[in-house]
Design a binder for these strands. Structure first.
Lengths: 191, 191
DNA sequence: GCCCATTTGTCGCGTCTGCTACATTATCAA
DNA sequence: TTGATAATGTAGCAGACGCGACAAATGGGC
């Protein structure tokens, strides 16, 4: 096997994944708009030239970064094993606590941003936002305790919509979403 | 009074507001990202030079366009006089029908986009998104029929969050928000 | 130690975008 | 009519941005 077809040197992969993680930090604090080759490279102490060398294209870089973010997010959400199932209102309250945590807010913002960019067909945002939404819905649905026959997907979508909508509200008017979850949780489980 | 302090010629104002309306159409169909001086000018059959002449700066142009959009939106929502008050679930169902209408979806998207841009402090998006959210909350709150002592603002915020969250869901995964409103309306009024 | 692929540095091209400088025409007041 | 002001056209600047060209250095396998 000719050497140029072998795996790239381990140092290369290591650097790539190290950079990916650092770029994810950067993106989480400055938004997708801040993810510009030159400034990102400065931040890493390298050059845009090097970023392109390791990531081939900016789109690839963004995809890598968003993947990294998506993974971290799942880790933050946590998956206690065995999974316990909760009534919709209780699940909403729990999810709310996680999602409105200062450490988690940047993640919500990033996905909102990615969704907006994706809406106009811009890749890789469109596809990544789609996948992430699907992952969320599945995550919520699998933890829902509902009577058989109840519309699981709709319930999951309702909870997710509420969480994302609250994020949007907080983005435009901080504080305006306070207390929503108590009201909605009561309504969901009270019926 | 020196003539250069007098009102600009009527033709100027007329052109400005005509252009504002046309630019609003443009923005609604192509998003805020499509609002670029050169392409917008092409669309109007003029030049970027002229846009800046009439609007002074792009930020002013965007502000004018978003104001126009905000006004149209209120008109679309309608304000039956005298205002009838509705139970939260009923109000949600009604608002849902309006907001998910094909003609209204572009408005939701624009505000989502403006909110995202505003989050990083970019003006005039930040302030305009803030104001519009406030207007929405007031609109909803004033139409809510709730027992005295009930948290009106929270209820309004919950409904708005659901509507905006559903918009976001539909943006990333068309169809995923279908049926949410029935479920939530039942929960809200059922308790 | 030598060869060659990997890795990095330097430079700048091509494009987009908001905005300006400057000249020219159109329009109204005196 | 004339002179000032408004309105429009032409050209291009300056900065941001993704990306490519080219050559130098670096380091591991023979």
């Amino acid at each position: 096997m000719p050497s140029h077809l072998r795996q790239a040197r381990p140092s290369s992969d290591a650097k790539r994944s190290l950079w990916t993680a650092q770029l994810a930090d950067f993106a989480l604090e400055s938004g997708l708009g801040g993810l510009v080759l030159r400034s990102a490279a400065d931040r890493l102490g390298t050059s845009d030239r090097m970023l392109l060398y390791h990531f081939k294209t900016k789109s690839d870089l963004v995809a890598a970064v968003l993947d990294n973010i998506s993974e971290r997010q799942i880790a933050l959400l946590g998956a206690p094993d065995p999974v316990e199932r909760l009534a919709p209102g209780v699940l909403l309250s729990r999810a709310w606590r996680v999602v409105r945590d200062v450490r988690f807010v940047p993640f919500m913002r990033i996905w909102t941003e990615a969704t907006v960019r994706g809406t106009r067909g811009e890749e890789p945002y469109r596809e990544l936002a789609r996948r992430t939404t699907g992952r969320w819905l599945t995550w919520i649905e699998s933890r829902l305790d509902l009577p058989p026959g109840a519309p699981r997907r709709e319930a999951a979508a309702a909870i997710l919509a509420l969480l994302e909508g609250a994020t949007l509200l907080e983005m435009s008017q901080p504080g305006s979403a306070t207390g929503i979850e108590r009201l909605m949780a009561a309504a969901l489980d009270g019926a």
